[in-house]
């Protein structure tokens, strides 16, 4: 299915957000996630199913003012 990850189209077979994060190499990374504009806690990623056209955000610490 096609979803959006950080604004870019991605084809994935991942059934859950946790699977998607693992596929992208973020399983152990310091990241936070949201799906369709709502925060998803790391503990809930395995319980969060993905559907076509979902918009996923995967963010990490960055410089800020």
């Amino acid at each position: 299915m096609q979803i959006l990850v950080n604004g870019e189209a991605v084809a994935t077979d991942a059934r859950t957000l946790a699977e998607l994060c693992a596929t992208l190499g973020f399983a152990q990374a310091k990241v936070a996630t949201a799906v369709n504009g709502s925060f998803v806690a790391s503990a809930k990623r395995g319980l969060t199913p993905l559907s076509p056209k979902d918009e996923v955000e995967i963010v990490a610490p960055r410089q800020g003012g």
Partner: peptide
């Protein structure tokens, strides 16, 4: 110090 969060590239 202030920090932010931004989209992470794989």
């Amino acid at each position: 110090v202030t920090v932010s969060l931004r989209r992470e590239s794989a």
